[in-house]
């Protein structure tokens, strides 16, 4: 589980009506869907599938509803993850999730790192430096270039943000990234 409340509070601060829900109808009626999350990939994938929310969520995404996965919620978007074994993801964006392979650097990658952004609906492309807050040991790999909207450096350059149509994924925590992160959430909330 992630700290859902932090994400909710950030959207409330921005003036959006945000609900934490386990109700399928509420998901259908929502204008936007956000999947936050920290923890282990396999547990999250399993509980999402077993709750029946996954099916509804995928339906809504297929209809074009804006969707945002944060941290583990982003990692779930890909085809598979190699966190403690090999696990199947949602295959909403092509790619895999692999562990940081760095020597001389600590894993998890924790703290503020500079996001290298590409022109995108979520990011204000003005200004060079966009520091955002990361906490993760695994990251997206083998992502087709057309879906990469943000990268960061930790030993090497890795994919930190993706977009495919109405599906967005952020590896970092916009809800904990100060004004820079709030601006991304505001832009997401404004998507039609």
């Amino acid at each position: 589980m992630g700290n859902l409340r932090s994400v909710q509070k950030a959207f409330e601060f921005l003036g959006f009506d945000a609900h934490i829900t386990q109700n399928k109808n509420e998901l259908v009626n929502a204008s936007h869907i956000i999947l936050p999350g920290v923890g282990a990939f396999a547990d999250a994938a399993k509980s999402l599938a077993q709750s029946g929310m996954q099916e509804v969520m995928l339906n809504e995404i297929a209809k074009g509803k804006p969707f945002l996965g944060i941290c583990l919620g982003m990692q779930l978007l890909f085809d598979q993850s190699f966190e403690n074994g090999e696990h199947i993801g949602l295959s909403l964006v092509p790619g895999q999730v692999t562990r940081f392979d760095v020597t001389g650097l600590k894993v998890p990658h924790m703290g503020w790192n500079n996001l290298i952004v590409r022109d995108n609906a979520l990011f204000d492309s003005e200004g060079a430096d966009k520091y955002v807050y990361f906490v993760h040991s695994y990251h997206a790999s083998d992502i087709p270039d057309e879906f990469i909207i943000g990268e960061a450096d930790y030993g090497y350059r890795f994919t930190a943000a993706v977009q495919k149509d109405n599906v967005f994924g952020l590896q970092f925590h916009p809800e904990k990234s100060g004004d820079v992160g709030l601006s991304m959430l505001k832009r997401f909330g404004g998507l039609k």
Binding site: S6, K9, E12, F13, Y133, E175, K176, G178
Partner: peptide, 8 residues
């Protein structure tokens, strides 16, 4: 605090 401050 968490309602108004969005850093860890």
């Amino acid at each position: 605090t968490a309602e108004e401050v969005f850093i860890p």
